[in-house]
Design a protein around this nucleic acid. Structure first.
Lengths: 332, 332
DNA sequence: TTGTAAGCGTTATCAT
DNA sequence: ATGATAACGCTTACAA
């Protein structure tokens, strides 16, 4: 006899047989529908004896609303700290409701996003939380009419009307600029990432400063470092820098250090960077609240699932300026 | 007529009717079982016209192996960069096989771990990848005999025999110590976290230095900072520090800066810290490879699912010392 | 309150 | 090769 012999998982039928009741009664007990206490306890005993647990897939199959008590989460990258914090925010509210989460990374690829969405949907998720990669989400219309709730996070959906939870990109960058201007800065440079991204263009809009001091489409910290060096070594260089994204901030930081300017040129980054307090001067940032983004998205989703059919909402989560030194340097 | 009217998702039956074939033939086409090309193309047309996609739950219900093409992942915390990198490693391997991932955070709570495991199992996952929180995993025996594959990551399972993928904790800390000794250090301090954790005791074992210079159970960077200050301001202070964990390293870094010793006392941390190259001196670390941990775990899992029933394996993933400055400071 | 039986969407068996 | 039909584990009328 092989030791790893597969033992069949007990079913309701098995429980019914052991408890000496009908299948339907077991179902009632399991679903907490009132039942004669005597029978109920026999069922509970049998459940415990057999180690029975309901098959969620089979249960959802016949259930009226076909709910699977699960939802799908499509992130840019599950291992990116910003998105994994969003993930956690969603998990916390889903957990309270006993809802499980399928998660996946689109790597900002529209085809992957779509493939994940349809896979999740095929697995019967009740709702989808999406950080959009594509620029056309009409394909999700079909899922929605089939009853799948839809909420977008961090970036708005396109060509479909649906709920979205966003950071206050414009307000955050405005706050950064105002902070620098209050310190007396008049020549402020802006470094941003891929302008095809919603967040990048929003932040640039929030900047609204001298276009000659703007550098966009900086992908990765090396590109940002190069652009920062170029800006800082040019004629009439800025006395302060605003960075529109994490990696861009890091690149700018390296540039400032390389040029020995880290205590002469002010810097405010958008999105917090880990250990921003450990370098000197500390890195002043406009921090987002990714966990709050996730929590709001999940709450919106569950409200929709509960029947809320008011017009699509857009929730904007405020940012917060954290002064650590680099943003408080005065102009020459 | 309400605009949001729920449209039923098309089923195989619908496709069969439109294509003018039997339900079974549709199933064959969908499952790529050879079928008359003429019929096949009619089915494909109908599938496209109706936007049909197979219901994964229903399919798994009747399928011989009851596979759901999904797996469950229980991490300490999905938003912890180390674990989310493990997550990504697993996702990459699972994606190639069209397998979806349920993920959840146990927050190092055994009860939550167990609850997640049973929930995932109730949803019919084919396998479970677990970063163990509890100290008794016998409850998973039942899942395994029901055919659920089991692989543990980062820490070994307890009271159950199963595959595990671990970092080379002992070797990594030994390398750190050897690196410092090679630079001439003889009084080396060790700061570690919760000794009830497998990884913490392994790393301490790898240290094996003077017990008087060891401080364990440092939870969070503040506690680590305090312990580091105490060690460094005592009599006969160490000339170098080895830190057993991320947050501990950060706490020690703050202590060194506060005492103005960051260029006098050497430091090597276990597990990389983000932006370790931006502070000065750069932070020398023994880096783990969390993505590799995840990939190995997933590969092991799929091998088991494919029928590999050799004895439980233990895979140890090597670490790598990254010299950035702090670990190359010489003793006085 | 309890049991019987139909049905959820699919796969698998068995004739044809 | 194709179609009819039972079966998967469960929920839900409907009957008793």
């Amino acid at each position: 006899m092989k030791s790893g012999a597969a033992t069949r998982r007990p079913t309701m039928k098995d429980v019914a047989a052991v408890a000496g009741v009908s299948l339907a009664t077991v179902s009632r007990v399991v679903n907490e529908v009132p039942v004669d206490p005597e029978l109920a306890s026999r069922v509970h005993d049998a459940v415990a004896r057999l180690g029975y647990r309901r098959d969620a897939a089979a249960a959802g199959l016949r259930r009226a609303n076909r709910s699977s008590r699960s939802l799908g989460l499509i992130l840019d990258d599950v291992s990116n700290p910003f998105f994994s914090a969003v993930h956690r925010g969603i998990e916390d509210v889903a957990r309270e409701r006993g809802v499980l989460i399928f998660s996946g990374s689109s790597d900002d690829d529209a085809a992957v996003e779509r493939q994940l969405a349809t896979s999740f949907s095929a697995h019967g998720v009740d709702g989808l939380v999406v950080v959009p990669a594509g620029s056309d989400h009409r394909y999700l219309e079909r899922e929605r009419t089939a009853g799948v709730a839809l909420v977008f996070v961090d970036r708005p959906p396109q060509r479909i009307l649906a709920d979205a939870v966003l950071s206050d990109n414009v307000g955050g960058i405005r706050a950064a600029v105002a902070h620098l201007e209050a310190a007396g800065h008049r020549r402020i440079g802006y470094l941003g990432d891929r302008s095809r991204l919603f967040t990048a263009t929003e932040r640039l809009a929030g900047f609204g400063g001298d276009p000659a001091l703007v550098r966009m489409d900086l992908i990765g910290s090396e590109a940002a470092e190069g652009a920062a060096r170029e800006l800082l070594t040019g004629s009439a260089p800025p006395t302060a820098l605003v960075c529109g994204q994490n990696q861009v901030t890091i690149g700018a930081l390296y540039a400032l250090r390389a040029l020995g300017l880290q205590r002469r040129v002010a810097l405010v980054g958008f999105d917090d960077i880990p250990l921003g307090g450990l370098v000197s001067p500390g890195v002043t940032v406009v921090a987002q609240d990714p966990a709050a983004l996730g929590r709001h998205a999940a709450e919106l989703l569950f409200a929709r699932l509960a029947g809320d059919d008011s017009p699509p909402r857009r929730i904007v989560v405020p940012t917060r300026l954290i002064a650590r030194g680099s943003g408080e340097l005065l102009p020459d």
